[in-house]
Write a protein that binds this DNA or RNA. Structure first.
Lengths: 146, 146
DNA sequence: GTAACTGCAAAATATTTGCATCCTT
DNA sequence: AAGGATGCAAATATTTTGCAGTTAC
């Protein structure tokens, strides 16, 4: 008999997928599960590692792509050119991301966090430039590595 | 006889390389030249294209790596996972970058600018996190594409 | 049953490394 | 002359694509 937490999680996964018009498959559930278990963001490589030998590399690429398209996860640019993915909050949906929070990358453990409570500041641009999205990535030491 | 501007540029290139203890070679001069000619930032691919058939792909990789190590250029993370490189201001040197300005990526022409006059704002982090470097990338429409 | 999803194979790209040769100092 | 830089070849790594078989609905 599965544990309570597992059941709840499973329902949540299914709900998330259904909401976005995606069919419920093992790989999608497993990958979403990884995001839910994880405080921070995951790179493609992280997911491959943690999923074990379970999926084809290609499935991971395609699944992540679908999740980004549907607004289930968003990408976080990092200086080392490894894209990280993190779960979006509920306000995000297909075609419109509302991730106005900042991102934090720990120098020590290399974990990437979405700091949902820290709102991106207003940026005053020079004449002639008009701002759309503002992305802030702070690098430093996280709460677990102090 | 070369034009005045060419001579000045050439001297500037040589000075930049000498300051950083690098030997003066054609590829380094040419790549630096591309940065000086260019208002915005360049990706590895941009450089290959603009340099024509002049250099081996490997030379471009190695040259950019050296420039980053020496603090001649800095990297700009972007959402599409293509690293852009831009010239550093004079205060940068080996091991310490002082690029406290923000970066701007134009949605229309895809040019990346260093907005040297726009300083990165202070970010108030949650308890437990300590900030190091703050990277801000604004996406919008640039002065030439309005 | 049908459309969507996956896994495999393979192509296309991107990046790194070793080494012989050439260039800068 | 000596050390550093380049170019070529080749090894790795990453990402994309096509297609046949499988699964979800």
């Amino acid at each position: 008999m599965p544990k309570e937490a597992t059941i709840i999680n499973n329902n949540r996964l299914i709900k998330l997928l259904k909401q976005n018009g995606l069919s419920i498959t093992d790989s999608r559930k497993k990958i979403l599960q990884l995001f839910l278990e994880q405080d921070g963001a995951l790179s493609h490589g992280d997911i491959e590692k943690r999923a074990g030998e379970k999926f084809d590399r290609v499935t991971v690429y395609r699944t992540l792509q679908v999740f980004v398209d549907k607004g289930i996860v968003h990408t976080i640019p990092t200086a080392d050119n490894s894209i990280r993915y993190a779960l979006c909050k509920d306000e995000c949906g297909e075609g419109h991301h509302h991730d106005h929070h900042i991102h934090f990358v720990c120098d020590t453990c290399n974990t990437t966090y979405c700091l949902d409570d820290v709102v991106t500041p207003e940026i005053k641009l020079p004449k002639g430039y008009s701002a759309g999205h503002v992305e802030v990535v702070v690098e430093g030491v996280c709460k677990n590595c102090q």
